[in-house]
Amino acid sequence: MNLLIDFTLLIGILAIALTCLISRSLFRSVVFFILLGLMLAIGWIRLGAPDIALAEAAIGAGITGVLLLDTLGHLKKTGNLENDEPAPGRKRLILAIVSSFTLVGLLLWAVFNQPTPAINIHLLVTEAMPESGVSHPITAVLLNFRSYDTLLEVGVLVLAVLVGLALQTDQQAQDSLPGLPNPLLHACLTLLIPAMLITSMYLLWAGADRPGGAFQAGAMLAAAFILLHISGIKLSSQVSHRMMQAGLLLGFGVFLAVATSSLIGGRPLLTYPEGGAGMLILLIELALTLSIGLILLSLFTIANSPPHHKDQGGDHGH
């Protein structure tokens, strides 16, 4: 019976991924992409990886889908949305098929021929858990044992936002898309936004001993911001530009400060003082949650610069 469920799920995931790729209509592809995120979240749960399932549900099924819909809206607004792209030539199609099958083959080969690791990582993590300051192994790995990975990842996110800000040509890039003046929606927001904020904090707190943590909490926070944004309530009109920028950098800053402060005490980079690890991890995660939330929101707010001058003759107004 379990096999039947897994098999149905597997076929579903593959079929949806394929349809997403070959669909001619962009909107249909986006809907299939959202469905794919959902199926993948279920798949990760089946595989017993709830941390990834949480992230996939929030980012894959939620935020990325909305980001793609937002992009479609901008394309439609500027008249650049063309549904009938020419089909790729047969040669290119064959090349794509051959190369993807080769890649799948190589990956399968790699999976079945993995070398046995010289050290038992599982055992090492389990042994070191008591000193990590948290009791959920994944959080311990992400923010203690291999925290340099996470630090660099956050650095990459911050860099991406900086590039986005640099590309923003117009001095006052206003969001050109309308909000949604629906009274029921705005009434529901007063219920939903607090629920989302509480869930975000819950996920952050849960990260200490259960699946959860800064990335999932940040995604949830971002979802709340984005919901407000697409309903027509602009965060930037409530908070000053400087505050937003500070918020974007806060997570990376706090992380970096904690990472380097250990040097002052004569300990190596990125280690926590004895006994204080739990508190410091919580502090870092809190700052990271806010920053990740704002970084994901900025994908929506800073990409809204008006279209280039070449299609100025179109029917959009400034």
């Binding site: 949604l180 629906n182 029921l184 929606l185 529901c188 219920l191 629920a195």
Partner: peptide, 16 residues
Amino acid sequence: LLVMLASALSGHLVAW
């Protein structure tokens, strides 16, 4: 409850 709220709201928005 949340799913009901979401469904009711999205149904309403699409119909609206």
